[in-house]
Structure formats: structure tokens, C-alpha cells
Design a protein around this nucleic acid. Sequence first.
DNA 1: GTCTATATTTCGATAGAC
DNA 2: GTCTATCGAAATATAGAC
Lengths: 212, 212
Amino acid sequence: MTPGRSVKAPREVAPPPSAAADDQLKTTRDRILDVSLDLFLEKGYDKTSLREIAEQLGFSKAALYYHFASKEDIFKALHNRLHALSLNNLSHLGDQTLTLRSWATLLDGFIDMIPANRKLLAMRERNRAAFDSLHDTLHKKDREDLDERLRSSFSDAALPVEQRIRMAFALSGVTGALIFSDESFQGLSDEELVREMKDRVHDALGVGPDPD
Amino acid sequence: MTPGRSVKAPREVAPPPSAAADDQLKTTRDRILDVSLDLFLEKGYDKTSLREIAEQLGFSKAALYYHFASKEDIFKALHNRLHALSLNNLSHLGDQTLTLRSWATLLDGFIDMIPANRKLLAMRERNRAAFDSLHDTLHKKDREDLDERLRSSFSDAALPVEQRIRMAFALSGVTGALIFSDESFQGLSDEELVREMKDRVHDALGVGPDPD
DNA sequence: GTCTATATTTCGATAGAC
DNA sequence: GTCTATCGAAATATAGAC
């Protein structure tokens, strides 16, 4: 396991031994993002200073500015990682009208991505206000964003009330549980988590398991 | 003197006309909390300054310090409002072992409180990182806190995996949907929302509706 | 209880050397 | 690409008059 020093060691973030080698292969830019992700997840975006990020990386605060234009720029880069995930899913879903069945398919795809992106997704959950502020900043006309797509679905008065609640509940059940997943579901394998989550989603949506 | 409408704030909080009279009856302390709640919900705790809070109230920033010792103190007071809600529910739930059925009862009680406390609950969802930081600050030994109670239940390895996921999912489905509730479920009556939410919870937990 | 004015601190960001 | 040193802004918080 990791050495006992979770203190502000100037150099090591205490990565698992196997990841130490990987870190050498990563660009400095990616290492900055990884450290930032950890800190934003743990302390929140606003309460994390550039000084802390630099400290954990072992170099000075000013050096960050060679790689990123601003603190918000780091945040945006993490937002882009999330955005890339959502694009994966949107492609599965054409412009067809949103049914409970297509919603289930969408969420199934989302759930599959959870194990590989748990920290990123949990960080988003814990910093919703900051993310929404960012969202306003980059007021994208092209709301290809998954979030936007989702919200507009919930708001669609043409859909029956029950269906809208089912969709919102299913989505929230998945994303919300992410917050607990690290600390509370320690013993669970990724496969267990994924399978159980999907079962819950299908319960909530009132559709049978996906006949893939 | 009470500075009735000397509000030169650029934008109105737009309180319902009937609430204007109520504001006269409230203590200044409560009015500060109400304005803070609105701003923390809209912009996030960290990005809301005391200057903005004071501005909306029509008096100066320094005046806030007569009523609260610090910004965090305002936050704590809102935390206490939430805490009071959770105590309501914990009393329903003794020290009995947690079953899916008792969990359903707990969440039903929680859902009933949603309409009257929507903003408060949504604000919490949007500021999870800040709330958890606060939680660490007041490291309460007596974890009578609802949140803590819940997390420890999810972590209980004695419970079957499926049950733990069901519980976490049901809770998250409810709290997460709060974020959407204001903007997306505008047309819905409180009764509809409450009933639908309860149905979803019982689906997720795999228990029939509460035979109350 | 509220004011004006100011202290204090922290942080994001920049300049310029190496 | 990283450093030291520093700037400037903004925020929290305090002092003391009214």
C-alpha cells in the first residue's frame, strides 16, 4: 500500500507502485489534471488553490501557467474529459424521441463507463455549482452537452409526468450513488456495481433489462 | 428604520407579494439566512460574497457581522436547518436494524418534507464539497447526523450487496432529482411530485407502498 | 444595529531570469 | 519548463463612530 505520509510531501502524491511508472509516461499537462482532479474531488474546486496543486506536483505555482492559462482553464480541461464521455453516449442516441427504453440504453452505456471514470464523475457531483458556473461562461449554442439534453427531456411537458420523474430519478440514482461508491462500496467489484446499478435503473424506468 | 424598498439592487429576488409582508415579521437574522440560501443555491457558496448578500438585503457588509460571526457561521446556520429536518426523520427510526422496509419509511418521510424545503435541499446538493468541508470542521462525535447514518448503512458489509445498492440508489434518486425539480418540474403540483417520488423509491427498494 | 473606513489575508496571475 | 519575486484584486473580518 501507499506509504503513511499523506502529508504535503513535495514530491510524491503517493501513487500505487504500478502507477508510478505510468506517471513517467504521462505529459506534465495530464499529471496536473490528475492531481487537480484528486484535489477538486477531495476539497472542492473553490477551496483548492493553485499553490496546493503545484505543491503536490513538486514544482512551483508559476510553472502551472506554462501549461494552463488559468485555474479555470484546468477546470475546463476536466470538463472536457467529461464531455468526451457524454459524446460517446449521445452517438448511441440519435434524434429519435426519447422513450423509457432509449433512456435505459443511454444510462446502461453511462454505467459501463463508471468504473474507469469514477473519480471524474464523483468530482462533478461534488462541484455542481462550480460546473454550472463554468457552463454559463462557455454559453455554448450547440447544446450537444449530455446534461443539457437530459434537462430538456425532463422539462418536456409533452411527456407524461410519470415518465419524466422516472428518467430524472434513474439518472440521479446513478450519478448520486457515485459519491458513495468509493468510500462505501469498497468491497464491491466493478462488475457487481455495474450490474446492480443497471438493475436499479431498469426498475426505476419500469422496463425490462436491455435485450442486447 | 426598516429600509422598506430602498433596495437599489440591480435585480429583484422577486418574492411573491404575500411574502413581502412576512419579511417584516422575520428577524434580520432569518432574512440574512433566506437571502444567503438563495445566493448559495444560485451561485454556489464559495462564489457568493458577503458583499452580495448585504447588497440584496439593503445594508452594508459590516452589518452582517453583528448577526453572524463569519461567513462560515451563516453556512452553519443553514446546515442546522437541514440538521433539524434530519432529526425529524431519525426519530421515526429507532436503533432497529435497517431493512429495506424501514428505509422506505425513512425516505417517505423525507419526501414529504421536500415541498416545504426544496431550496434548502437543492442548495445542499449543489454545494456538497462545501458541506462536507464544514462537516469535517465540526467533527461531531455524536454522529446523529442523517447523512452519517446513511453512509454507514451503505458501508455495512453485513448487508447484502444488492440491498446496499438499492438503498444508496433510492436516496440518490430522491436528492438528486431535487436539483432538477425547480426548473424542470415547474408544472407539477407538490402532490404529484411527492407521490411519484415515493413510487420510484419503492420500486428501487423492491418493496410495496407503505401500508400506513 | 448599522455605518464608514481600514486592516489582513489569500489567491490568481504576471514579469523576467535561468 | 521551471524558478523567484511581486503585483493587483477581491474577499473576509475588524475598529470605532453614530
